[in-house]
Write a protein that binds this DNA or RNA. Sequence first.
DNA 1: ATTCCATATTCGAATTTTTGAATATTCAAT
DNA 2: ATTGAATATTCAAAAATTCGAATATGGAAT
Lengths: 119, 119
Amino acid sequence: MSDLDRFESKAEILKAMAHPVRLLILEELVKNPRCVSAIHEILEVRQPNISQHLTILRNAGIVGSQKDGTYRCYFLIKPGLVKAAFSALDTYWPETNIDDVRKKFKLALEKRLQQEQSS
Amino acid sequence: MSDLDRFESKAEILKAMAHPVRLLILEELVKNPRCVSAIHEILEVRQPNISQHLTILRNAGIVGSQKDGTYRCYFLIKPGLVKAAFSALDTYWPETNIDDVRKKFKLALEKRLQQEQSS
DNA sequence: ATTCCATATTCGAATTTTTGAATATTCAAT
DNA sequence: ATTGAATATTCAAAAATTCGAATATGGAAT
């Protein structure tokens, strides 16, 4: 791996984290390992999309996974990094509230579902 | 500003940082405020592109700027955040070396210039 | 063997990002 | 007023991201 690649890898880690859904997933995984369906219940985002986001996090080396029967359990590979990143963000953007965000995702999903029904 | 916006703002901060050129710029600004031409000399990236990246950092609220005659000086608005982010990345991806990256950028620029001359 | 449930993959369209090229703006000095 | 240096903006094209829809895979239980 070249030196450039190594530095770009830092940008890629940040890029992998730089999405609201992925931040929410990471928030959950900081607390507990979770299988996809558990994340799905919490996040109210369609399952394939969650798998896509998990793939991005996995490719960035941020999460790992382990099969458990039919389920697949995701966990943080570098919990310290994620915690430090959240801590930095919380310290300097303290206004963010994770539960409000969940509320918003729920609203957004309901809106989508209504639009689908009415069309 | 809604709660969602606030959470998405964290993703946007990360997104704004999640680019090799912008990380290099921030590395410089952690050490010192810098005007565009100083950044230009260090980074070996075309000036308009540097201004574009600086605009992204400015819009994210990460850097600010101040006119100084013809020059414009950029500085970190939240140095603690940037330092904490770098610290987290350095702790968990310690292999990255900033000088190697500069070397690589220099090489890439020279390659580009050669291609332009020969075409 | 088939069915069901959990998860992943593929594909395509819409959107966003990235960057170079060209040009514009702004200020200082003459 | 004009010139020159520093910086910003605009535009367009290429590349990358996002996400839904549809489909595929893989394991458990019957």
